[in-house]
């Protein structure tokens, strides 16, 4: 690894400056109380783990301290896109 991660705010920086946050677009449930134990367990513990394109969260913890999302290929580690929190996952071919 030792990626060069393009922080949307600061530009490309070494992976060592970042903190990893796992899968992106996992929203905190609207109303946790309404969820079954199974559904709640899914939110707590189950995350996608694809071999291939993965939308994930990073925080530039030793830089601007901002969270952002990246679309990275977990088979090659290539970063296809970075985008801000709240933006939809970019469509890549």
């Amino acid at each position: 690894m030792m990626l060069l991660i393009p922080c949307p705010w600061c530009g490309p920086r070494d992976e060592a400056e970042f903190h990893y946050g796992g899968q992106a677009h996992v929203a905190y449930p609207e109303n946790p109380a309404a969820l079954s134990d199974e559904e709640w367990a899914r939110y707590l513990f189950f995350r996608d783990n694809p071999k291939g394109a993965f939308a994930e969260r990073w925080s530039h913890s030793a830089g601007c301290r901002r969270w952002f999302n990246a679309l990275r290929d977990t088979a090659t580690n290539e970063i296809h896109a970075v985008y801000r929190v709240g933006e939809p996952r970019p469509v890549t071919s």
Binding site: M1, A16, N49, E56, R72, N77
Partner: peptide, 14 residues
Amino acid sequence: IDAANSYRQRGAFH
């Protein structure tokens, strides 16, 4: 472990 998910059998040098 390396913090980020990956299926490459390769970690970061730091």
